[in-house]
Design a binder for these strands. Structure first.
Lengths: 236, 236, 236, 236
DNA sequence: CATGAATGAGAGTTCATTCAT
DNA sequence: GATGAATGAACTCTCATTCAT
């Protein structure tokens, strides 16, 4: 019995310890976030991050085994936030009730999920920068492939609810995939340009543009893909 | 006469010399391009660029006075290429002849200019990376403001023909601006995601998606903006 | 009790650590001294200094944040040494006792302080080199103005005891200033030429020359400045 | 005869050519002077000197075979100027005529020669900087020993007229040597401190101090060295 | 004679990372 | 867990000098 008590004590002590460690890890991540945002991924040195966290450079190695890992943890947290926001986005079904067919519900879900995705980055523009290192030319050299895969998976996860709802709306898998891609592209483009002050084209109206796009997309999804659109042709 | 010949000789020698110098400068730029593309703007060291060009690091300073200047020259050339492509894009007016009203011509022009913009980056995906350092968070620290301004101007120039054609189609200035912004965003998003192998969603079909978007946009421009679309509502 | 012991331990550990750090800093400074002396301020590279100290170049940045700072620390230490030597120089009042008036004491003080100044540099000729970067044409670009001011102040401090004693001897402020200037100039010239092997004129007899100058100066200070010297005239 | 004429032609052409070359060499030296004075010996790069002369760096190698050689030429010219000034300095013997004994003439010569030396550097303070690289710690690494010797010789030459006049005044060789050394030291110290604005002690009155020193020195030289001065003793 | 390109060494400084304490 | 010292490689950039043209 004494033994068992001891064990419990030890366990709870360990738990507390782990909790404290996690807290401090979080603290470092907050510091890193601010450094990355202000100075860029390459511009923010470990020393700078450490200073902002109130540590020495070496101390960070208690929490993370490399600078890349800090970045990965940050990106991971961000994507988790994105996912939880998307998951929790409930379809708002208003209107004359009864007519709430499965299709109508699916449509509302598309709208809700896509808006959640867009909204997350619109409200946390910095997280977009973070996520962008997923894209080429800016890849942080050194991210291990496994990590990379995991992070890409998280991004997929944030998109797939929208895709599933599209299918639930009745469009075939291929069209859903295409529309999802186009939607994602539009969102990324919109956000990228939006939180850039340099190209003076957007004046905080990115959500107007997004709504417009979303509406038109949903209209497309309603219409059977088979019915060809008239008079409109080829690209370059 | 002897004198005149001598002068000509001297001039032509200078010209030849300058031509050779330009060629070598170009050669360095090509090397820099490849280095930047493979290693990123910060990842590509002067030494690496020099090695790829077959030079020592110091030698590059005969051609460019800093690393930033190399990048600026590269981006400048790229944007010039984009502009000339857009300028030269002629509206292809086919169809039932007679009906070739001014509006129809304007519509064809929108299509042509926008497609040229898209096509340029689609065919030179690397140039997009280059251009992206214009965007925030990835700004190369140290680009002089004047240079920066000039480069941003070039980007604008590549977009304005499309905008003008939109206005010529009859839509008001404000709508034109908005549609241009959305178009630009869509293109950027599309291209960014497209030439990324990492998000496995695009299979070289970015031009299909682009055409689709373009068609819908043109349809929007035809319809008087005043007629509101039904049943479709608010964003997040 | 245990607690108090622990605190003491921690403190003393810190103290020891700081002591060790100071020692190592001193060690670097010694290495830098030798490098500066042999190679000149610009000739001595950080790498050279580091090598002499048994370090890598980067390691020095634990102790000093720039090359200039090393130089400044060296010069600072040197001037402190000079000052303490001058301060500690006591007037040796010998002779027929009784006559030890205030004036006589002041005279002895002038002699003592000036001799201390001279003696310091005579015995540490290298320190003169160090101090000389205070002079123009050889200024190390980059010394911060505050530092510069502080160093100049230290030099002044080393001279002012002599000046005060001059005034105490009874000569007016203006004459004291002039005589001090001349004395300082003579010392500098003497020392500069003295520890140079190149101009073969001085054979370690700089102190004889100094004594001679000092004696004559004191005689001048005794005599009321008002009594004009005869027959002696203008310069170029 | 035709031959001889040809020879003459060739000679004069060569002479002209050489004259032109010398002129251009001088032009480079002027540029180098300004660069050295403004930027210091190590701070002035060959490129800077070349630019000031309107040349490319490589072009200077037509005139000088190294940067050191430029410096040496400059210093040489400076010392020649000093020498010619000293040589041309005539003793101004004024006063009641008759008494113009040999000793009086020698005394006037000491005064004239020393004043010329002092005056030269007082009027060309920059040349002092130049000459200072003769002194330790600031030696330009790489000056060939022969050159060095020649330059030192020139300096000696500028001093020896004063020394000879001292001897002519009747003092023995040893005393002359010592007084010369002290004089030289005083001049150097005076000038060094004088054209430095940093030690706020001299207000352009360096010539007053010089005159004072000169007068006292001459008085010493008049008095037989054997008569010991009273009451004045030892140095540090 | 002069140029412009090129070299190769070396400058000061920063960095992620390691490790004894 | 945290520190401060240390490493070693890398960075951009400058320099005196050489040499084909």
């Amino acid at each position: 019995m004494g033994t068992s008590i001891t064990i419990v004590d030890k366990d709870s002590r360990d738990a507390r310890r782990r909790a404290v460690a996690d807290l401090r890890k979080l603290h470092v991540m907050v510091a890193a976030r601010s450094a990355f945002f202000e100075l860029g991924l390459e511009g923010a040195s470990l020393r700078e991050i450490a200073k902002r966290a109130g540590y020495t450079a070496g101390a960070l190695y208690s929490y993370f085994s490399s600078k890349e890992e800090i970045y990965a943890a940050l990106l991971g947290k961000s994507l988790e936030g994105l996912n939880s926001r998307v998951e929790n986005a409930a379809a708002e079904i208003g209107g004359p009730s009864a007519r709430s067919s499965a299709k109508a519900r699916a449509e509302a879900t598309v709208r809700a999920k896509a808006s959640a995705f867009f909204g997350f980055y619109r409200e946390n523009p910095r997280d977009l920068d973070l996520g962008f290192y997923l894209l080429p030319g800016m890849q942080p050299r050194g991210l291990t492939p496994e990590l990379n895969k995991r992070l890409n998976g998280l991004l997929r996860d944030a998109l797939s609810p929208t895709q599933q709802a599209m299918v639930a709306m009745g469009c075939d898998a291929k069209q859903a995939e295409q529309e999802l891609a186009a939607l994602f592209a539009h969102i990324v483009g919109l956000l990228l340009l939006s939180h850039t002050g340099r190209i003076r084209m957007f004046k905080g109206e990115s959500n107007v543009l997004f709504t417009q796009y979303l509406n038109q997309m949903i209209e497309r999804l309603r219409v059977p893909a088979s019915r060809p659109r008239k008079r409109l042709a080829r690209a370059s």
